[in-house]
Design a protein around this nucleic acid. Sequence first.
DNA 1: TGAAAATTATGACGCCGCGTCAATAATTGA
DNA 2: TCAATTATTGACGCGGCGTCATAATTTTCA
Lengths: 246, 246
Amino acid sequence: MVELTRKQREIEKRTQEILRVAKPILVREGFHALSMDRVAAAMEYAKGTIYNHFPHKEEIVLALAIESMALRRKLFQTAAGWDAPHRVRLMAIGCACEFYTQHCSDDFAIEQWIRNVNVWDKSSTARQDLIRRCEGECMAIVSSVVHAGVASNELVLNQALTAEEFVFGFWAITFGSQILTASSPSLAAVGILDPRRAIRIHCCTLLNGYRWQPIMDTDAYLNRAEELSTSIQSEFSRVRAEHYTS
Amino acid sequence: MVELTRKQREIEKRTQEILRVAKPILVREGFHALSMDRVAAAMEYAKGTIYNHFPHKEEIVLALAIESMALRRKLFQTAAGWDAPHRVRLMAIGCACEFYTQHCSDDFAIEQWIRNVNVWDKSSTARQDLIRRCEGECMAIVSSVVHAGVASNELVLNQALTAEEFVFGFWAITFGSQILTASSPSLAAVGILDPRRAIRIHCCTLLNGYRWQPIMDTDAYLNRAEELSTSIQSEFSRVRAEHYTS
DNA sequence: TGAAAATTATGACGCCGCGTCAATAATTGA
DNA sequence: TCAATTATTGACGCGGCGTCATAATTTTCA
């Protein structure tokens, strides 16, 4: 029984090794470069052994995405736990998104791969469910902040929008801007020099538009965001470091 | 010389045929299913002939994306030409995005393929430039509406944002929500039942937040959007039909 | 018009990655 | 100790990529 457990642990450990080997290949050279033969060669195992762990490379990508999304969730939790007015806690989650995209850029890139239909459809429902769960948990963290804002009367949501639909707007604008920034050919050429600043301003306007207290003018918001971003950064870095060493 | 022209036209025509054959394969079965052998077989030409037209399949995808973006641009132009207050013209462009995503879903899907790093990086700079140009033109159409709004004093942009950065916010939220709607596992499960409606409300709030006249409350905006969407639809359909028959 | 030159079409070829599976090795249990 | 179970291996068949020598067609020009 002890021996069995040891063996099982070895196998589990190797699964992790596979992911460690695969991640830089996927991120730096793309999906096409990630081949089972190459992973096997890099680990000095036979290809068949790799197939004992993952039925195809798409499943490796999903497994990596699950890890990446777990890191995102931890950052969201850290941000949501910040001691500040609820509106500022939402801003902190925005900072978490910025941190994730900038300082966990490999994970950000991996998250995008699972939006590829081929990768998604080929994968097991078990891992798909894990992804969905993680996405739901991230959403729940943000929603809880909105609910807290409503509960404390800092935000009034009329019946037009649920808290989740409210969150969806910020999700869309943040996600959309980050994808465009990462993949749109030459934003600068069409006159968008500082997309992050522009999106911060839009989020401020949107929050003010919903009258989420305290109302802030653009300059106050940008200053607060910058200050917040700086002060919360070390927390994020710690969470990130812990995530990578576990 | 006449003969030469005839031959050249035949070749050009065949390039189009290749795109016609490739499009449904790419859209319905994905990038992996699009193989040069298959295109050649479907057209009853030898593979080498296909390679005379496109150096690899990535270039076919980019060529398809150029066509798709041209359709988007035409829809934007149609919307921007709508006879209405500038704020409503911007809404009309939003309707164009919705129409494109819903009723030109193949083209919408193709546009996303070029965000794939492998596809983009492998393609010729000539086609990349065409894409960039088309994206710039779309941006210019939307910007022109914003500039018109500013010129007519319906919108006041303080120095915090340029017109392009203003547009970027709507681009991000619209694009982001459409990508999430198309690719995010089970939005409904996390409580977002009608993403389009939610995003319309957010856009309304954002426009109101910037005080773009005429200010509309949520219900008025939703009604106006619905009405606009219906009345402009036949124009969009006409543009779409023309695009496909040319 | 007819033959040489230029252009275009063909598909077999070498290479690579996928996923399989029969054979082999290692581990377990009694 | 040895049979049963489990894990590992890598050769194999398949299919797609992109090439290129060869064949077919078209153009040029005398």
